[in-house]
Amino acid sequence: MTTATETARRTTRRRFDARKWLPVLGVAGIVLYCLAPFYWMVVTAFRRPADQYDLSPLPRTWSVENFRAVFEPGTGFGRALLNSLIVASTTTVLTLVIGTSTAYALARLAFRGKNLVLSLIIATSMFPGISLIVPLLRLFTDIGWINTYQAMILPSLSFALPLAVWNLTMFFRQMPQELEQAAMVDGCTPGQAFRKIIVPLAAPGMFTTAILTFILAWNEFIIALSMVNEREMQTVTVAISKFTGATQYDQPFGTQMAAGVIVTIPLVIGVLIFQRRIIAGLTSGGLK
């Protein structure tokens, strides 16, 4: 009897050990899978161009030569960075304005077909953006919009809008209706009550939506690739994909990695700072 419990206890102890180490190994493996690409990108970016194929875990000689190469006048990368900034911020602001207006109607006003409208808006988020390229290109060619910011902003806006509307609607619905009613008793119109009471209170939700939209717009590739054929107007994602570097002979991995660092790190830092809110924003759709 005692030996039986003894062995039972021992097996539980051994299983407990395995249970303790397996997650650690799992976490280590996955963290490696997640972080190795980042790590290698950053480390390679800081090597000297001559050392770009080194395999040492840290640069033997640290250098910012690659970053200088990225911004050399010939590459047009600085301009591309500015273009991306303009396109992504404009898209974000417009998405928030239009999204808030739509979400207000969906969350606060009573009208028929509300669920149909919400379903339709969500359905558009599943739309394959690529199939719109040909017609959009034709449309934008006709009205002379090729190589303009608006040709990149408007399609991005329509791709970002569904998620924004969904997030904001869920967020506004959580706010107690009494807040507006109190404001209306005090003489505000419904619109005023919304603008002056609800919007300021909803700032965290708007903020999350803004970050999600910005990342979506910043990462956009197909539209920017097709609507622009002038180097002056291309965005960073397109610029990186077309990077050939200073010399044509070898692949400019160091420069590419430096460009990747410049494009990625601001987003990653932003995401890490606001991670809680972003997680809340991402899950609002699934959890309701």
């Binding site: 997650p23 650690v24 976490v27 996955i30 963290v31 997640c34 972080l35 190795a36 690409p37 980042f38 290698w40 990108m41 390679t44 990342i215 910043w218 990462n219 590739f221 960073v236 994602t237 397109v238 990186i240 994909s241 990077f243 991995f253 590419q256 990695m257 460009a259 990747g260 494009v263 990625t264 987003l267 990653v268 932003g270 995401v271 890490l272 991670q275 972003i278 997680i279």
Partner: peptide
């Protein structure tokens, strides 16, 4: 601590632009 590490790694990968991620993977 491990949970925070997991989330940081995951969110970092999520925020990386597809183009930048692709070039890094090609290099690796």
């Amino acid at each position: 601590l491990p949970r925070t590490l997991l989330f940081l790694a995951a969110l970092g990968a999520w925020a990386t632009p597809a183009v930048a991620g692709s070039t890094v993977w090609l290099f690796l």
